[in-house]
Simulated assay, not measured.
Amino acid sequence: MVSESRPVAVLVGPPGAGKSTIGQALADALGVAFHDTDTAIESEQGCSISDIFVLDGEPAFRALERAEVARAVASEPGVVALGGGAPMDADTREVLAGHVVVFLDVGIADAAKRVGFDGSRPLLAINPRATWTRMMNERRPTYEAVATVRVDTAGRDVADVVAEIVEHLGAAR
């Protein structure tokens, strides 16, 4: 059990990398809480992220996201999963400095299976495969820059990915 008030690990990566699923399984394996910043924003706002994008615009969502990430990284003692775009914000990158940040890497084939590209993700609503590929090409350098650990999730089951992350966390302590 962890007694610090900072995350054991912060998960970053694109839509479909498995941040929520792997994050929950990792938290369970470590015996700590799991916190998903997107879920927290939806709960606080009383509507979906898609609705926030439509009603208030992306800049409004990013401001909410920036604040929630800063709060979570400062006070959540377990595993924290960030939305895919969160690390693109310079303030968020500063907040992540000094933390164990796990980049869950994935290719488009696996991401498509996991996400389904069904339009529920606002940034992937139009031509989802091309948009995801472009987004990943733009975001990859940032994910790699903020990460202390990179784990490829493509073609792997959750237990295998969690075991690799636990192994990295053990080596980091």
Score class of each variant (00 low, 15 high):
Val2Pro: 14
Arg156Ile: 14
Pro141Cys: 07
Ile165Lys: 03
Val106Asp: 00
Leu123Gln: 03
Ala147Gly: 06
Leu96Pro: 00
Met135His: 06
Asp157Met: 14
Ala33Ser: 15
Leu104Lys: 03
Val100Arg: 10
Val100Trp: 00
Leu30Pro: 13
Ser5Val: 12
Asn127Phe: 02
Thr131Trp: 08
Ile165Met: 13
Gly98Trp: 00
His35Gln: 11
Ser50Ile: 12
His35Phe: 15
Asp152Gly: 05
Arg71Leu: 06
Glu167Pro: 12
Asp36Ala: 03
Val12Ala: 03
Met88Thr: 04
Thr131Asn: 05
Glu94Met: 06
Pro7Gln: 04
Leu30Ile: 07
Ser75Leu: 11
Val10Phe: 03
Ser43Tyr: 10
Ser75Val: 10
Asp91Lys: 06
Gly16Phe: 09
Leu104Ile: 01
Gly57Asn: 05
Arg134Gln: 15
Gly83Asp: 03
Ala171Asn: 14
Ala29Ser: 14
Glu76Lys: 05
Phe34Lys: 07
Val158Met: 12
Asp28Ala: 15
Glu58Gln: 14
Ser50Ala: 15
Pro77Arg: 01
Thr92Asp: 02
Val79Lys: 00
Gly13Ala: 10
Pro15Ile: 12
Gly116Pro: 08
Ala90Gln: 10
Thr92Ala: 05
Asp157Ser: 08
Glu58Pro: 02
Val102Lys: 02
Glu144Ile: 09
Leu104Gly: 02
Met1Gln: 14
Asn127Glu: 11
Asp105Thr: 00
Glu94Ser: 10
Phe34Ala: 09
Val161Ile: 15
Thr148Gln: 11
Glu144Phe: 08
Arg140Pro: 05
Leu124Phe: 08
Glu42Val: 08
Leu104Asp: 01
Leu123Pro: 03
Leu169His: 09
Thr148Cys: 12
Glu58Thr: 10
His168Arg: 15
Ala67Tyr: 05
Ala125Val: 02
Asp38Leu: 09
Trp132His: 04
Arg156Ala: 14
Ala74Arg: 12
Ile41Cys: 00
Ser3Leu: 14
Val79Leu: 04
Leu169Ala: 10
Glu58Arg: 10
Glu76Ala: 13
Thr142Leu: 07
Ser20Asn: 12
Val158Arg: 12
Gly18Gln: 08
Leu55Tyr: 12
Ala112Asp: 07
Pro77Tyr: 02
Glu164Tyr: 09
Glu58Asn: 07
Phe61Ser: 01
Arg6Pro: 03
Ala145Asn: 11
Leu82Gly: 01
His35Cys: 13
Val146Thr: 07
Ala112Phe: 11
Ala90Phe: 04
Thr131Met: 09
Ile126Lys: 13
Ala67Glu: 11
Gln24Thr: 14
Thr153Ser: 06
Met1Ser: 14
Arg140Thr: 15
Leu26Val: 08
Val100Asn: 11
Arg134Cys: 07
Ile49Ala: 02
Val101Asp: 01
Leu169Gln: 08
Gly116Arg: 06
Val73Glu: 02
Gly84Cys: 07
Ala40Ser: 04
Val80Thr: 01
Asp36Ser: 04
Leu26Ala: 08
Leu30Cys: 13
Gly98Leu: 01
